[in-house]
Simulated assay, not measured.
Amino acid sequence: MPSKSDLTGQTDPQTIELVEERASIGVRETITGRVRVTTATETFDEVRSHELHGTRVEVTRVPVERMLEPGEAPPGSRTEGGVTIVPVFEEVLVTETRIVLKEELHITQYETTETVDIPVSLRRQTATVARVNPEG
C-alpha cells in the first residue's frame, strides 16, 4: 500500500507495535535478621543513713537531810526548769516520829539525735540486645 504524504510532501512510514513492556512495583517482606533480648538482674549492697530521735534520762541524787516540822506536809513531786524532782522520805525514831526528807531525785531529759548506717540490698535490671543470623 502506498504511503500517505503530508502537506510538506514527505512520506510517513506505517508503525506497527509488536511488544510493549510494562513495569510493576511491589513490596515483599524479607527477613534480614533477628534480635534476641535478654534481661539480667543484679543485686548490690548500699549503705543508707537515717537519723534516730530519742530521749535520754539522767538521774542525779541530791542529798537534803532536812527534818520536817511536826504537822508539815511532805512535799510532792514537782518540775522546775525542765527537771522533775521526786522527794524520797525516811522515818526516823526520835522521842517522837518525824518525817525526814532524805534526798531528792533530780531527773533531767535530753533530746538526742543519732545517725545510723543501715545496709540494704537493692536490685538493678539491665537488658542486652544481640543480633542473630536469619538462618538461625
Results as ranks from 00 to 15, higher is better:
70 P>E: 11
65 E>K: 06
78 R>T: 08
89 F>K: 04
53 H>M: 09
74 P>H: 00
44 F>C: 11
70 P>C: 04
49 S>N: 12
53 H>D: 06
53 H>F: 13
57 V>S: 05
69 E>K: 12
74 P>S: 06
63 P>I: 12
33 G>I: 09
83 V>Q: 04
30 T>S: 12
37 V>N: 03
41 T>D: 13
71 G>F: 00
41 T>N: 07
88 V>G: 07
79 T>F: 05
61 R>T: 15
83 V>C: 03
89 F>L: 06
68 L>E: 05
52 L>N: 12
30 T>P: 03
76 G>C: 01
36 R>V: 08
77 S>V: 14
88 V>Q: 14
35 V>I: 13
43 T>N: 15
36 R>W: 05
71 G>T: 02
70 P>D: 08
75 P>W: 03
84 T>L: 04
38 T>R: 11
68 L>H: 03
83 V>T: 05
52 L>C: 07
50 H>C: 08
34 R>A: 04
30 T>E: 15
51 E>D: 15
66 R>H: 01
35 V>G: 10
75 P>M: 08
79 T>Q: 13
46 E>D: 13
57 V>A: 05
52 L>Y: 07
62 V>Y: 09
45 D>R: 14
69 E>T: 13
34 R>C: 01
39 T>I: 07
66 R>F: 02
49 S>H: 11
45 D>P: 01
82 G>K: 00
86 V>M: 02
78 R>L: 07
69 E>G: 04
59 V>H: 09
82 G>Y: 00
54 G>T: 10
39 T>H: 12
39 T>G: 12
56 R>K: 13
64 V>N: 08
77 S>C: 10
73 A>I: 07
47 V>G: 02
54 G>K: 08
60 T>W: 01
65 E>Q: 11
88 V>H: 11
86 V>P: 00
29 E>D: 14
59 V>G: 06
77 S>L: 11
57 V>H: 02
88 V>I: 11
79 T>V: 14
30 T>D: 10
50 H>E: 15
34 R>M: 09
47 V>E: 15
41 T>F: 04
80 E>Q: 09
29 E>M: 00
30 T>I: 15
80 E>Y: 04
76 G>I: 03
42 E>K: 14
86 V>K: 10
35 V>Q: 14
77 S>G: 11
85 I>V: 13
40 A>H: 12
85 I>Y: 00
73 A>E: 09
69 E>S: 12
89 F>T: 02
83 V>P: 03
53 H>Q: 08
71 G>V: 01
70 P>K: 09
47 V>F: 08
55 T>M: 10
75 P>I: 07
36 R>S: 07
58 E>S: 05
76 G>F: 02
65 E>M: 04
64 V>R: 15
80 E>K: 07
